[in-house]
Design a binder for these strands. Structure first.
Lengths: 249, 249
DNA sequence: CGCTGAATTGACTACCCTCAACATGAGTGG
DNA sequence: CCACTCATGTTGAGGGTAGTCAATTCAGCG
């Protein structure tokens, strides 16, 4: 409860302020290349568009929309979902502040996922055509976006490994640890945080039913590895949780 | 049997010949941007290195090797595997002629996967530094590699969906259809082909045990949807197989 | 010929899903 | 304030799919 308020407060003074620029955004260490000259940051900043925040449940873009931008999450959290031929949804990822979505759209100039806000969220829109032009002039920027996409690939492959080999417990533990460490990158607590997504989203993402998700949470709680209070998670024994995530029960 | 020989023959006259250039490689429609000027193809060709073929089981590169190149498969087939913290392998993908591997290495300048030949295979090595420089001069090429990586992302996400939601039958059916359509792109038969990988590799990739893989093959065969003769697969009823892949049993 | 590794088949088991009941909390309106 | 609904989450009982363990077959090969 108190934690939630802390996060809200922290995000507020930067996140929802449209006048923020890339140069003074406290997330730029995460979403920009480290070694970018001041004038280059300004050039990038000049093509970035900041619009009003998305409310919970609102779409950032929809699958089959024409691709023209990638988006950096500035505050809040979003999920990416794709719709199978059969019609049911698959959550393909969660994206937190500092992370970039939309790169699925490049392949065929059409987004393959829809991206939906899990809570009030603001984003920076980066028109891809202009980013491409800028990348031709700033080699560091070209390299940075190659790396961003590469990182997305390796992360997806880690999810593949998780779904292919991991038990239900390992899947949940891994998700918790992932969110924990991503919070760490933003200098938030790694032990105490709010899950922005519902149990349904978690289950959908991890290939588990909502009932199993719930059961695992209570099981981990009873083992004194985590404390669960609705969406607030406290990691009590990080070490054992890591073991479970790695399949060493 | 006869099919195998056909494939071998087709590959032979182009694939293992080191004097092949990008300009006359019959795979260039797959691995190069469509609209590349002749002189640009030559410039790309000049940075591509062709070495002697890999034998079955040989490594193209290993996880934690320093990243410096991406590789286009020219003939044969390879698998990418990553090693988990626990030490066991996960096959993260299979790559056929015309497809590109190695883009997992960009993120941290170190490969995260190892790539291993499933049969005698030749590859084109593309030093990434030189490719980056060339991309700054040839915008189409930059775009092409962005798209290649984006396609890898969307494909990995499809695998995630498959592992998250699909039954064992759906997983196998999907893999067969994937290989079938990728053969189609190379103007090979979509109904009759050789699986380059072992049952163990298939099971590892799809998150199934080798026993289950075997059982599904015989089940699909008994339902007269496919014919299986060791590694040779004949798809008899593509339509029903698609339904199974989509979960509409 | 026997050895080895890969694949198949069978019997049993376990993990997770399905179905169902119940709990909780937010929002609404009497 | 309570009663109601609706969405979300928790808990329990039973069943099914795929895993485990084990035996057997088969192909390749020295």
């Amino acid at each position: 409860m108190n934690n939630m308020q802390i996060i809200k407060t922290q995000d507020a003074h930067c996140a929802h302020d449209k006048r923020v620029s890339c140069g003074n955004c406290r997330l730029n260490a995460i979403c920009l290349p480290i070694s970018l000259h001041v004038e280059d940051i300004d050039r990038l900043n000049s093509i970035v568009q900041r619009s009003k925040p998305l409310q919970k449940g609102e779409y950032l873009y929809r699958a089959s929309d024409e691709f023209d931008s990638v988006f950096a999450i500035r505050s809040g959290a979003v999920k990416a979902v794709s719709i199978s031929d059969k019609g049911d949804e698959q959550v393909t990822g969660f994206y937190l502040p500092g992370e970039v979505v939309g790169m699925d759209g490049l392949a065929d100039n059409v987004y393959t996922n829809s991206v939906i806000a899990l809570e009030t969220s603001s984003v920076c829109e980066i028109p891809f055509n202009r980013l491409e032009e800028l990348s031709l002039q700033i080699p560091t920027l070209q390299r940075h976006f190659f790396q961003l996409m590469s990182r997305e690939i390796t992360q997806d492959q880690q999810v593949i490994t998780l779904l292919s080999k991991g038990s239900a417990e390992a899947r949940i533990a891994t998700l918790l640890l992932s969110i924990s460490s991503r919070n760490g990158r933003r200098n938030l607590s790694t032990n105490d945080f709010i899950l922005p997504m519902s149990r349904t989203d978690i289950g959908n993402f991890l290939g588990l039913t909502i009932e199993t998700v719930s059961r695992i949470f209570t099981r981990l709680q009873k083992s004194n590895l985590i404390a669960v209070d609705k969406k607030e998670i406290t990691i009590i024994d990080m070490e054992v949780l890591r073991n479970i995530a790695n399949g060493n029960d």
